[in-house]
């Protein structure tokens, strides 16, 4: 045994040890059937998804005469930003003719407090449910989760009455409260599951170190859970920004969020349909969630995967 080993390591032997035939990494063809199918499918699906966006962008950059020609897929001959300016600052909805800008600021004023309030409440909720197991915690959690499965339509009218009774109906704050309530079940679930994945011994160690409910939350749990907060922020920003139903039900025309205003612009029955303005307005409305996705996409994926990887 020892003899053969020394023989193998002799330099003369190493050069001739390789025999003819397959060697090293297996070669892969670029245009294999597998690759053609894979990339072919991906490209078709991508085109299918991106085509409407392309039509929107192209249409929004055309003048009305060019649109009337009917070639919706052709690129603009003469690029104009007129529809964008009109959509932002001149388009009429009802009595106001100051465009989407009013709705944009309304949406900002609705989204920011709603996101902060709902995430603050839900994270504390989830933390309490995950780490401070109190009597009836499971029951409480079940009730909360059941809330996620009740159709919104059922609750619209009761909430109208509730808001009217406390004098918040039609105000921005009324809508903020509604958004915070409806974000609660899914966000609490999200945070509870995340905090449950934090090792229990960490929590115990902090208790031995003398930290209380808030001390552990702010100084141990919060700094550890940036990924899940990013996920929650993305979910809430896009969800609340894109909301139409609550916006149209719980606010007045001068406090309408952007989505409701967009609908009013696009669905106005009087006058000519200005397709380019409508497209520009739609893109403007969708821009905020889009930016949020692009800016934090990486963190989002990391947050979604965070539960699977041990810290």
């Amino acid at each position: 045994m020892a003899d053969t080993a020394t023989l193998d390591m002799a330099p003369a032997a190493t050069a001739t040890r390789i025999e003819t035939g397959p060697r090293g990494a297996k070669p892969r063809k670029t245009f294999s059937r597998r690759n053609i199918f894979l990339y072919g499918t991906l490209i078709v699906v991508a085109v299918y998804y991106l085509l409407p966006l392309y039509v929107m962008v192209v249409t929004s950059l055309k003048g009305m005469p060019e649109i009337r020609l009917g070639n919706i897929f052709s690129p603009p001959v003469e690029i104009t930003f007129e529809p964008w300016v009109k959509a932002w600052s001149q388009a009429c909805t009802g009595l106001n003719c100051d465009g989407l800008s009013r709705g944009f600021w309304n949406s900002v004023r609705i989204t920011v407090p709603s996101v902060i309030l709902s995430i603050a409440l839900a994270s504390i909720n989830g933390y309490a449910l995950a780490n401070w197991r109190f009597k009836g915690a499971d029951l409480f959690f079940t009730i909360l989760i059941v809330g996620a499965f009740i159709p919104y339509q059922v609750m619209i009218y009761p909430i109208v009455i509730l808001l009217r009774e406390i004098g918040l109906y039609g105000s921005l704050w009324g809508l903020v409260i509604v958004h915070s309530i409806f974000g609660m079940p899914i966000l609490t679930l999200l945070f509870r599951n995340y905090f449950t994945s934090v090792p229990e011994e960490l929590f115990k160690a902090a208790r031995v170190d003398g930290a209380g409910f808030w001390g552990i939350y702010f100084r141990i749990m919060l700094p550890m859970s940036l990924p899940i907060f990013v996920v929650a922020i993305i979910l809430q920003v896009t969800g609340i920004w894109n909301d139409f139903l609550f916006g149209v039900v719980y606010t007045r025309p001068d406090t309408y969020p952007m989505t409701v205003q967009l609908n009013n612009i696009v669905n106005s029955v009087q006058g000519v349909k200005e397709y380019n303005v409508n497209m520009a307005a739609t893109i403007l409305t969708g821009l905020v969630p889009l930016i949020v996705y692009f800016a934090s996409g990486k963190l989002f994926v990391r947050g979604i995967a965070a539960g699977a990887v041990k810290g």
Binding site: L202, R207, D209
Partner: peptide, 18 residues
Amino acid sequence: EPKDRGIGMVFQSYALYP
């Protein structure tokens, strides 16, 4: 409460604040 018992504790998973 644990902090008032005059104990220090060492855990299996170290439980260091990351």
